[in-house]
Computed example of a mutant assay.
Amino acid sequence: MKNYTVSVPISGWVCVSVEANNEDEAISKAFEEATLEDLEEWEMHKCIVEGNVFHGLMNEIDIFKED
Rank of each mutant, 00 (worst) to 15 (best):
M1W: 11
K2A: 15
K2T: 15
K2I: 13
N3M: 03
N3D: 05
Y4K: 15
Y4V: 13
T5P: 06
V6R: 12
V6N: 11
V6G: 13
V6A: 14
S7G: 11
V8Y: 00
V8G: 03
V8N: 03
P9V: 04
P9M: 04
I10C: 15
W13Q: 11
V14R: 14
C15I: 05
V16P: 13
V16G: 14
V16N: 12
V18L: 09
V18W: 05
E19R: 01
A20Y: 08
A20D: 11
N21T: 06
N22A: 10
E23I: 14
E25Y: 08
E25N: 08
E25W: 07
A26C: 09
A26R: 04
I27D: 02
I27T: 02
S28T: 08
A30W: 02
A30V: 09
A30T: 13
F31R: 10
F31A: 13
E33W: 09
A34Y: 00
A34M: 03
A34C: 06
E37L: 07
E37P: 05
D38Q: 01
D38L: 01
L39F: 00
L39I: 04
L39G: 02
L39P: 04
E41K: 00
W42N: 07
E43C: 04
M44G: 08
C47G: 04
C47R: 01
I48Q: 02
I48F: 01
E50G: 05
E50H: 01
E50V: 02
E50D: 15
G51H: 03
G51R: 02
N52H: 10
N52Y: 06
V53M: 14
V53I: 10
V53S: 15
F54E: 00
F54S: 00
F54G: 00
G56Y: 11
L57S: 12
L57Y: 10
M58G: 07
M58H: 13
M58N: 11
N59Y: 13
N59M: 13
E60P: 05
D62L: 09
I63R: 04
F64W: 10
F64S: 13
K65A: 03
K65T: 06
E66M: 09
E66Y: 12
D67K: 07
D67G: 12
D67W: 06
